[in-house]
Design a protein around this nucleic acid. Structure first.
Lengths: 280, 280
DNA sequence: TTTATAATATACCGGTTGTCCAAAAAAATC
DNA sequence: GATTTTTTTGGACAACCGGTATATTATAAA
């Protein structure tokens, strides 16, 4: 990614942490990163999209860390699980993500809200899966309940600790929650107490598809924008791309070949690569 | 309270529920309640203060309901406790308070944030106290932990249920949480597992003092505002009131007598009554 | 060197909350 | 009923906000 763009994101990020999302004006970001307004809107279509970019970066970095934590260690190891949770929570704390998420919900921006919500559900799904790995299939029927319980305890505990400005270690909180879940597992396997259907989350698009949808819509948006100022020939090419990207299995080679013939195609090509690369 | 003012609050309230806090402009409120901008700012110094007023009203009404639920029934009755929790949660849900609170945090208004935070702590304190009443003194050492756990489970569960748009009854969620806490109580009294010091909350100003501080500051603000357009004689009276209200134990009768001699004292008198009335 | 692309500065738009004020209306007081 | 006080009105205004549009300049690719 563009060095300059990265710099803007970092400046914005630190401002968001420092002053909060809503309280940070675009003017502030411009001044801190020493760019002009025009440049800013070249990089990001809106303040919200900038925030999403920052979120995405944090998440992917966090997931990376989580991977590293578990690498070469047994999935049922409770310590590994705790460490993985800790990674996330500490990132959240360090980046004031709690506050930022809340800011999002007030923004009334549907896309942004959806993004945060989806992230929350992903996180829950992750925890549900990991809990099954840790405690075994016997807790499968209660896995979603347990995930929500564990999440709730940790989140509320941290929230409380932050509110009263007391110093309690994140790992102590997580361990505490883990011990409560330990006990709950024993108890629930006896009482067979179930609240939520384990498959509730399955109905919700998993992350990758959601991501892919985002990318597709971005690409289509760009094509649409280009059409407004395209000549006849270019327009035909663009229409083809539009149709192709909407196909079940868009053919990358063809699309790239066609795109080559379109003038001012840089952003288009960038978004197309983004669309076809399953990994970010 | 002024009928008209009440009407404005109701209009704003319904708009906030409908469209959210940030998305509701003052203009919207003016139109819905059919008043002018000038009048609005006569009633409320800002949009934030209006929101606080609404919160206060909801809270006091909810507390009232809670009182009624327990009236004449034993404090250790679990069903009573569950019903009381349910009252609050249903009010929250009905009034979209989750979303409104989040809107608050985005507003970056310090007073508003403090208010919501204080409310959260009050709620925790209430639950801590009630848990002791329900389970007895033996859980005293773990009461704060348990309160946070219970709160966290309920809140997260409800949040999740709303997110996935599934219909799960509020009371089912609360009962579920209650059963988890039941088990946790048994387990913890054996393991003696403690995370948070029970007295952590004591340090935080209880609601009444906080309230009183708010009223005092409002009163002082009004006095300050009046001073700017007061003649010499009036100014002397105002200065006296200012000093008196800052005393340990302000003398109501004296202040009221002095206030009578001040022209255009309506709002002043109103705020003074508010200040001296311990009950709203 | 030419040409395409990126970055700049700035004016502008419609929106926001909140201030201010003169004038009209309503209420309270004499 | 007349006078005074209080409340309400409605709109101009200021200072912001996010975002658009554009003409100009700088930079890099051909």
């Amino acid at each position: 990614m563009n060095e300059r763009k990265k710099k803007v994101m970092e400046a914005a990020h630190s401002l968001f942490i420092e002053k909060g999302y809503a309280a940070t004006s675009i003017q502030d970001i411009l001044e801190k990163s020493a760019i002009s307004k025009g440049t800013f809107y070249n990089y990001f279509p809106s303040k919200n999209e900038l925030l999403i970019s920052i979120f995405e970066k944090i998440h992917s970095e966090t997931d990376q860390l989580r991977q590293e934590v578990i690498a070469g260690r047994p999935v049922q190891d409770k310590e590994v699980f705790i460490e993985q949770v800790k990674v996330k929570m500490e990132v959240n704390k360090r980046n004031n993500l709690f506050a930022l998420f809340q800011g999002v919900f007030a923004s009334e921006d549907e896309e942004l809200k959806k993004f945060v919500k989806q992230h929350h559900l992903n996180e829950l799904r992750w925890m549900q899966r990991r809990l099954i790995e840790v405690y075994g299939m016997r807790i499968r029927a209660f896995s979603l309940d347990l995930a929500v319980v564990m999440f709730g305890i940790i989140q509320n505990m941290l929230h409380f600790v932050i509110a009263i400005e007391e110093n309690v270690k994140v790992e102590d909180v997580i361990s505490y929650a883990m011990r409560r879940v330990d006990a709950a597992v024993d108890e629930i396997t006896v009482s067979k107490d179930v609240l939520l259907d384990t498959r509730l989350l399955e109905k919700w698009q998993p992350n990758e598809l959601q991501e892919q949808e985002r990318k597709k819509s971005k690409l289509l948006q760009e094509i649409g924008a280009m059409q407004t100022k395209a000549d006849k020939r270019t327009d035909q090419l663009l229409v083809f791309l539009q149709d192709e990207v909407r196909e079940e299995a868009p053919r990358r080679l063809i699309m790239e070949t066609v795109a080559k013939e379109i003038p001012q195609n840089k952003e288009l090509v960038r978004l197309m690569n983004d669309f076809f690369d399953t990994d970010a």
